[in-house]
Lab assay of single mutants.
Amino acid sequence: TFEVERIVRKKIVHGNTSYLVKWKNYSSKDNTWETEDDIRTKYGDLVDDFEK
């Protein structure tokens, strides 16, 4: 199971928000862009903290 360590960046393309996710126990080269809906479902607190 993958676990988010932190959110690195945010991008908005054509009105759709995605977050660059750093995965726990993986290197930064393994970071992936994930949709806001996918990340918010399980890691809403991390998204809220990133947006502060």
Rank of each mutant, 00 (worst) to 15 (best):
I12M: 06
V13R: 10
I39H: 00
Y19W: 03
Y43L: 04
S28A: 10
D49R: 10
V47F: 05
I39G: 01
E34D: 01
G15V: 01
I7C: 15
T1F: 14
T17W: 06
K24T: 07
K29D: 13
V47C: 04
K42L: 14
V13N: 09
V4S: 01
K22T: 04
E36P: 03
K10P: 00
D38L: 12
K22W: 04
V13T: 09
N31E: 08
S27Q: 13
T41Q: 13
K22L: 04
S27Y: 07
K29Y: 11
D48Y: 07
D37C: 11
D48N: 09
L20F: 08
R9S: 14
V21P: 03
E5F: 02
S27H: 10
Y43H: 08
T32I: 02
I7S: 00
D30N: 14
K22E: 07
N25S: 09
Y43E: 03
R9C: 15
N16F: 10
E51A: 04
Y43C: 07
T41A: 14
Y26R: 15
R9I: 06
F50M: 02
E5L: 06
V4N: 01
R6A: 13
D45G: 10
D38N: 12
V21L: 03
K52L: 12
I7A: 00
E51I: 06
Y26F: 13
T35G: 06
V47T: 04
D49M: 12
D30L: 14
S28L: 07
R40S: 04
W33I: 00
T17A: 09
K52M: 12
F2K: 15
I12H: 05
Y43A: 11
N31P: 08
I7H: 00
V8R: 01
D38F: 15
K10G: 02
T32N: 02
W33P: 00
E3I: 10
E51Y: 05
G15K: 04
E36K: 05
I39A: 08
E3S: 05
K42G: 06
R6Q: 13
Y19P: 00
T41F: 12
D49W: 09
K11L: 08
R40V: 08
T1A: 13
V47W: 08
D37S: 13
T32C: 03
D30W: 15
F50R: 01
K29S: 12
D48T: 08
D37F: 12
T41R: 13
Y19M: 02
D49Q: 12
H14C: 14
D49K: 13
D49E: 14
L46E: 04
V21Q: 01
I7Q: 00
D45F: 13
K42W: 10
V4R: 00
K42N: 12
Y26I: 12
T35K: 12
Y43V: 06
R40W: 05
D30M: 14
D48F: 07
L20P: 00
Y26D: 08
F50T: 02
K24L: 11
D49H: 10
R40F: 05
Y26H: 15
D37M: 12
V8K: 03
T41P: 11
I39V: 09
G15C: 06
D37Y: 13
S18I: 15
L20H: 02
D30R: 11
I7W: 00
L46Y: 05
L46T: 04
D48P: 04
Y26S: 14
I12D: 05
Y19D: 00
E5K: 00
K10D: 01
G44V: 06
S18D: 02
L46D: 03
E34L: 15
T1D: 13
S18E: 11
L46P: 02
R40G: 04
D49A: 14
F50A: 02
V47A: 07
D30E: 13
N31G: 05
V8L: 13
E34W: 11
D48C: 06
N16T: 14
F50Q: 02
T1I: 14
W33A: 02
K22Q: 11
W33Q: 01
Y19S: 01
E5R: 00
E5T: 02
G44C: 05
K22D: 03
G44M: 10
Y43G: 04
Y43Q: 03
I39K: 00
I39F: 06
R9T: 11
I7N: 00
Y26Q: 14
K24I: 06
R6T: 09
E34M: 15
V4D: 01
N25L: 06
N16M: 14
V47N: 01
K10L: 05
K11S: 07
E51R: 03
L46R: 03
S27F: 06
